[in-house]
Simulated assay, not measured.
Amino acid sequence: MIYSKLKPYIMVLPVSLLMVLFIYALINGLIQSFGILPAAGLTKFTLLYYKEIFTRRDMMSSLFLSLYISLVSSLIAVILGVLISAAASASGIVKKRSFQLLKVPIILPHTVSALLIINVFSQSGILSRLSYHLDIIHNQQQFISLVFDKGSIGIILAYLWKEIPFVTLVVVTIMANIDSSLGEAAINLGATRLKAFFNITLPLCLPSIVTSFIIVFAYSFGAFEIPFLLGATSPKSLPVLTYLEYTHPDLAHRPYAMVLNSLMTTISVLLTYIYYKILQRNLKKVGVDTNE
């Protein structure tokens, strides 16, 4: 009897402990970002680190690089994901077991994705060697640099490898279940299949498209492994720069890392809020009371 009453609290205990640790780390990091780190002899509250971070050239370069990588990879992933979803829905392949292979890139660890990109797209990779054997290039160094490059092409390719399947699986779930009679009615009234897609199917899928874009953008903006493994020496992405500041031999550099963490956390919270508002609006459209 006592156990049945305590069971709900026992079940949420692991999550509660994780939340406590998360909130503690968040508050501790915020305090350190204001220059309070007794272990390094820093005890006075200051905004100097925030001021320095936003005036440092390497920091602004890292911020713009992370935004560029996230925006480009997310836009391409959404566009290709929607196109694949449309093709899969129209052909009926979405109902076949082979379509579930799209889940493989999502399941694979980031390090495996990075290794795949290196093996295929680097100057010593499969494409480079194939181009050499076909006499397209005379040596492997002539192959275009796609990995460890300042354009971050290798990073974007690695994100696309994981994000396109995710967007496809999110969007195709909605697209494949849209009543086909809506499109057929539009075609009977004189609309082409393309117009029916853009005027009926796409607007109905728009909420899932927007939310998938927000998710993949937030993921690529805050991810560390792939930019660390595939990124150029300079500039570095924001998560990599944060890691380097955190592991700096001089403990007095720790507040810089915490300022960068605070910046990424703020952007992530903003994206989460946007996602929540979109979800809330969609629930209201289907008649779910979000105030309960």
Rank of each mutant, 00 (worst) to 15 (best):
M1H: 05
Y3F: 13
L6H: 08
K7L: 15
P8C: 12
P14F: 04
P14T: 01
L18C: 09
Y24I: 02
S33R: 03
G35S: 03
G35T: 05
G35L: 04
I36K: 05
P38S: 06
G41C: 01
G41L: 01
T43S: 15
L47K: 03
Y49M: 05
Y50L: 09
Y50A: 09
R57C: 00
D58P: 04
D58K: 11
M59R: 00
M60T: 01
S62A: 15
L65G: 04
L65W: 08
L65F: 07
L67Y: 04
Y68M: 14
I69D: 08
I69R: 11
S70I: 09
S70T: 10
S70R: 11
S73H: 05
S73F: 07
S73N: 06
S74P: 09
I76N: 10
I76A: 10
L83R: 05
L83Y: 13
I84E: 05
I84N: 01
I84Q: 07
S89T: 14
S91G: 00
G92Y: 11
G92L: 07
G92R: 08
I93M: 12
S98Q: 03
S98A: 06
Q100S: 13
I106A: 05
I106L: 09
H110F: 02
V112Y: 07
S113Y: 02
L115H: 02
F121M: 03
G125Y: 11
S128C: 01
R129M: 04
L130E: 00
Y132W: 14
L134P: 04
I136N: 01
H138I: 00
Q140F: 00
Q141N: 09
F143Y: 10
V147P: 03
F148W: 11
G154Y: 08
K162H: 08
K162T: 04
E163T: 13
I164E: 11
F166Q: 01
T168G: 07
L169I: 13
V170G: 05
V170I: 15
V170H: 08
V171E: 12
I174C: 01
D179H: 09
S181H: 15
L182K: 14
G183I: 14
A186V: 14
I187K: 13
N188C: 04
L189R: 04
G190S: 10
G190P: 10
T192D: 10
L194Q: 11
L194P: 02
L194W: 14
K195Q: 15
A196L: 08
T201Q: 12
I209C: 15
I209Y: 09
I209G: 08
I209H: 10
I209D: 10
T211I: 14
S212V: 07
F213E: 06
I215H: 02
F217C: 00
F221V: 01
F221I: 03
G222Q: 01
I226N: 07
I226Y: 04
P227I: 13
F228K: 14
L230V: 03
A232N: 12
P235L: 10
P235Q: 09
S237C: 07
V240N: 08
T247G: 00
D250Q: 12
A252N: 10
A252S: 15
A252E: 12
Y256I: 12
A257M: 04
M258V: 01
V259C: 09
L260E: 08
S262E: 05
T266W: 03
I267K: 03
S268P: 02
Y273D: 00
I274D: 00
K284A: 09
K285T: 12
V288S: 00
N291W: 13
N291A: 05
N291Q: 12
E292L: 15
